[in-house]
Nucleic acid binder design. Structure first.
Lengths: 295, 295
DNA sequence: AGAGGTTACGGGCAGCGTAAGGATC
DNA sequence: GATCCTTACGCTGCCCGTAACCTCT
C-alpha cells in the first residue's frame, strides 16, 4: 500500500552500516522500536525480508544486500540535491563535533558560531576530549567531525590540515620570580597535557633525552589547570602561545626561552569520507578558515 | 525542518509534465489543494521557489529546472528498485486502461483478470471507446495504456503488436434466409463499425470501389448492436470471427463468403515511453500473451 | 540476567479533502 | 466570469515514544 520513502532507505542504510538496530537508533536520534518499525514498513512495501534476525543483531538477506546498492545511490542523489539546489540555510540534521581542549580554549566558540550562521537548522553537539578518544569516536561513528592532533591515518577518513599552534614556555609571573633566572628542568616540575596525548609523549621523550629520567612531569587533563599551576608557581609549561599570550599580558605568567621548544601542535579537522556529506566537508574547511583568521 | 520525500518529487515531476497543478491533481488522484500543499512543502524544505505562479498555470523557475534533472534520476532509481528488488505483488498504483470495443467483447476480461493477479494492489480503471479517442487520451496522459487499432506513430509511444482479428461476413441465421442465396451489396445494408473508425473507412472505400456509391452503410458504435442487427436480418456485416463464431454456432447468424474480405483488424497495446514504467511494459506484453492464448 | 529485537498502545502532527478566498486573463 | 492557485479548517491516519514481552547467549 505505501510508497517507498527516502527516510526508510536512510534508516536502512544506517542499520546496515552499524550492523545493529539498537546502535542505528542512537545515530538517528530515535528509539529502537521506531527503527524496527521503519525497517518493517520498508520490508512490507518491498514485500521482502531485508534482514535475518539472529539472536545477536541482524544480518542482511540476499534481497537486503541487493537493496543496499540502490539505497546508496538514493543517498548520493539526495546529497547532490543538497549541494546544488538546496539553500544551505535549509540543510537539516545533526553534527556531533568532537574537539581537543586546546581548540575549545581558542577558536571553538567562533567556529561554532560561524557554523551555526551557515547552517542554522543543524543541531550541533559538542564533546571535548583527548585526541585518542576523539579518533575512536569518529571511527565508531559516534562523532561526525573531530578537530584533533591529526591526521588520522585511515583511508576512510578525510583530514583537513589546520594552522599549527606554536608553543612557548611559561612560568609564573609572580613578583617573587626573578625574570632572568634560568629554569632547571631537573628540579622544576613540568606541567603538560594529559597522559596519553601526543604532546605529553613528545615532551616526555624530549625531556628524557635532554635531562635524563629525573625530570618531574605533572600531566593535567585540563589546559586551564595547567595555566593555573604555572601561575601558582608549581612548575613551568610549554603551552600554546595563542592561549598564553593573554595571561602573559596580564602578568599572571611570563614567557621564557630555555633555548628549545617542543614542536608546534598540528591539528586537523577530520571526518569519514563515507557516507559523503557536503555539510561535513564545508564545516571542516570552515574550521580551517576560522583558525587561520584567529591564530 | 522536514526532509526530502520521494512523494514530493513525484508530485513535482507530475506538475512539470502536465504544466499545471490542477491537471497534475487529476493524474495523481488528489485534490488540487493537496498538490499545492506538496509543492509548497517541497519548496520549503529546499528553501527555494520552484514555480513562478503566473495567472494561467505555473512555470518552472531556474531552481525548479535544475531540480527536474535530479527528480528524474530519483524516478529512474525508484523504477529500478521496483523492477529488481520489489515483489510485483507489492507494486502499487493506478492503471487507466483504454480499450476498443472489439477487445472489450473478446479477451478484455481475461486480460484484466491476469493483470490483477500479477499486480493485485494496482487499481485498474477501464474506458471503452473508439481508437481515435483512445489515442487522444493516451497523448494527453489521461490514459496510461490503450489497446486499439494501432500502431500510434509518435515517437513518445511504444506499441506492442497484438495478434490480428480475422473478419468474416455474417448474415441472419433465421430460417427464412436461403442458405445459398447470393448477397447483393447494392441492395442489402452493410452494418459496420462506427463512423470515424478505421474499419468503417476501409470498408466504405472497399465497397465504393467494388459496387459504386449506392451501397448503404449502417455504422453502429456498439458491436453487440451490429450482431443484433445482422441477426434480425436488417443487413449483413463483416465482423471478427472471434466474436461471430459463437453466434453462428447457435444458428443466430450464419457466415457466408462473397468472395472477398476486409483486412484483418490489427490491434496494438500502446503506452507512453516516458516516464518509463516497468509495470506498463509488463502489462502490454501480458495483453499480447492473453490475446495469443485466446484468439 | 543482560543485550537485541518485537509487540502493544496512546498521543501528536502531517497531510488530505471540503470550502472559501484571491488573482489574472 | 472563468480559470487557476492559495488559504482556512476539521479530520483521519501515520509514526514516534513508553512500556512490556520474547529470545538468544
Amino acid at each position: 500500500m505505501p510508497q517507498l520513502k527516502l527516510e526508510q532507505l536512510r534508516t536502512f542504510l544506517a542499520v546496515v552500516r552499524v550492523g545493529s538496530i539498537n546502535r542505528a537508533a542512537d545515530v538517528l536520534h530515535l528509539t529502537q522500536p521506531a527503527v524496527t518499525s521503519r525497517i518493517k514498513s520498508l520490508e512490507e512495501t518491498l514485500g521482502t525480508e531485508l534482514f535475518e534476525r539472529t539472536g545477536s543483531g541482524v544480518r542482511l538477506t540476499k534481497q537486503g544486500d541487493l537493496l543496499v546498492g540502490y539505497a546508496e545511490q538514493f543517498r548520493q542523489l539526495a546529497e547532490l540535491v543538497e549541494e546544488n539546489v538546496m539553500d544551505p540555510g535549509e540543510v537539516d540534521g545533526f553534527l556531533r563535533l568532537g574537539v581537543s581542549e586546546t581548540i575549545a580554549q581558542s577558536w571553538l566558540a567562533e567556529f561554532v558560531s560561524d557554523l551555526h550562521r551557515l547552517y542554522p537548522k543543524v543541531k550541533i553537539e559538542i564533546s571535548v576530549d583527548i585526541s585518542a578518544h576523539l579518533r575512536e569516536g569518529l571511527l565508531t561513528r559516534e562523532l561526525d567531525l573531530v578537530i584533533l592532533l591529526g591526521p588520522i591515518s585511515d583511508f576512510t577518513v578525510d583530514n583537513v590540515e589546520l594552522p599549527a599552534f606554536d608553543l612557548a614556555w611559561y612560568r609564573s609571573g609572580a613578583a617573587g620570580t626573578a625574570r632572568e633566572a634560568a629554569v632547571d628542568f631537573t628540579k622544576t616540575p613540568v606541567i603538560t597535557y594529559a597522559k596519553g596525548t601526543r604532546p605529553f609523549r613528545e615532551l616526555k621523550s624530549e625531556l628524557f633525552g635532554r635531562f635524563g629520567p629525573h625530570v618531574v612531569l605533572f600531566p593535567s587533563s585540563s589546559l586551564e589547570s595547567c595555566f593555573r599551576l604555572v601561575e601558582a608557581g608549581i612548575g613551568v609549561a610549554a603551552l600554546p602561545k595563542a592561549l598564553g599570550q593573554r595571561l602573559a599580558d596580564d602578568g599572571r605568567v611570563q614567557e621564557f626561552d630555555p633555548g628549545w621548544l617542543p614542536n608546534p601542535l598540528k591539528f586537523t579537522a577530520s571526518y569519514l569520507g563515507e557516507p559523503k556529506s557536503h555539510m561535513l566537508e564545508t564545516a571542516a574547511h570552515l574550521a580551517r578558515d576560522v583558525a587561520q583568521r584567529t591564530i
